[in-house]
Every structure is written in C-alpha cells, then in structure tokens.
Simulated assay, not measured.
Amino acid sequence: MTTINTSSLGSYSSVFAAGVKTDDSKASDATSISVNLNIKTDKAAAQEALTPSQQAIQQLQDQIKEAQKRLLEQQKQLATAQNSKLPDAEKSQQVMAMQQQVSATIAQLSALQGALLELMKGNVSTKA
C-alpha cells in the first residue's frame, strides 16, 4: 500500500513523504521506502523560470488588473455620488472629485497598457 499525504498542500514549499507498506504476514523481508520531495509551488518559484522580459510583462499585467479593479470601484463611487441626495453644491464637489480620480486612473491604465504593448512588441513572432 502506498500512502501520500496531500492534506498540507499549499502555496509554500512542502515536504512529501511516501511510504510503501507490505503485509508482514505474507512476506518475511518487508521493505520500507521513504521519499522526501522539496517542491516549490509558490508564485516566486514560477517567476524564477521567466526571463526578465517575461517578468516585466507579468508585473505590468498585474498592475493593469489592479488599475482596472480600482477604476471599477471609482466608477461605482462616482455613480453613488451622482445619485446621492446631498445638496447640489456638495454633490457637484463630490462628483467632480470622483471624476478627477477616474480620469487619473484611466490615464495610469493607458500608460500601463502602452508600456505593456512596447514590451510585448519584441516578443511577437510574425513568422508563419
């Protein structure tokens, strides 16, 4: 019987132990084997295999995702401010402030996407 404990699998380095058990009543020369494996399963280990260019692309893609999340949240806040029942003066101040934040996030997102395109330009193969 082979036993592998997988209950502690996570995103960090783990040690696995595998044992082979034999029925002692059937065999007089029982054998036991123990195997220890160090396996890197975290994101840093995956990035070690990437080239510097691929790492930069991955970082830009992560930053773009974060900027998109932030933009979505800001747009929700803008809609809430536009639909609020505050006096017009306060409401317009909040809406203008939110529009400025949305504009800044859109500009940042555009810059990140442009940088990503520039990095990826060298990685695109046009050969058939």
Rank of each mutant, 00 (worst) to 15 (best):
L86D: 06
I106Y: 08
V15N: 09
S28N: 13
K43A: 14
A46T: 13
E118F: 00
S92N: 14
L72T: 15
A104C: 01
Q74R: 02
A128S: 01
G122C: 04
K43N: 13
I33K: 12
L117M: 08
Q75W: 03
K26C: 04
D88T: 13
S92I: 04
Q100L: 00
V35T: 12
K21W: 06
A49D: 14
Q101N: 07
Q58L: 12
A67Y: 06
N5F: 01
A18C: 02
K69T: 15
T2M: 14
P87T: 09
S14H: 09
S84H: 02
L9A: 07
S34N: 13
A45H: 14
K121H: 13
L37H: 08
M96G: 03
K85H: 15
L112K: 00
G10N: 14
V102L: 08
T3A: 01
L116Y: 06
K127I: 13
E66I: 09
S11L: 13
T105G: 06
K69A: 15
T3K: 02
M120R: 03
N123W: 09
Q100M: 02
M98F: 14
Q94N: 15
Q101Y: 10
Q94A: 15
D23R: 01
A49I: 15
N123T: 12
G114P: 00
L72K: 11
E118Q: 12
Q108S: 11
V35M: 05
L60V: 00
A79C: 00
L60I: 00
N36M: 08
T105V: 05
A46L: 11
A56D: 10
V124F: 03
L117V: 05
Q47K: 05
Q59M: 07
T31W: 00
V35H: 02
T22Q: 15
S84G: 06
D29Y: 01
A17N: 05
S92H: 07
N5W: 00
D62Y: 05
Q101A: 04
I33L: 11
I33A: 10
L112Y: 05
T2Y: 15
Q55G: 07
K91R: 14
V35G: 00
K69H: 13
K121T: 12
Q63L: 04
Q99I: 06
T80F: 08
Q68E: 09
Q82T: 07
A89P: 02
A79V: 00
V35R: 08
V15L: 11
L60Y: 02
A18I: 04
L71V: 06
E66M: 12
P87W: 06
A89S: 08
A44I: 04
K26V: 04
K127L: 09
L86M: 10
D29G: 06
A49Y: 14
A45C: 05
V35A: 07
D88P: 05
Q68C: 04
E66L: 09
G19N: 07
F16W: 09
E66Y: 10
I33V: 12
A17V: 01
A27H: 07
N5Q: 01
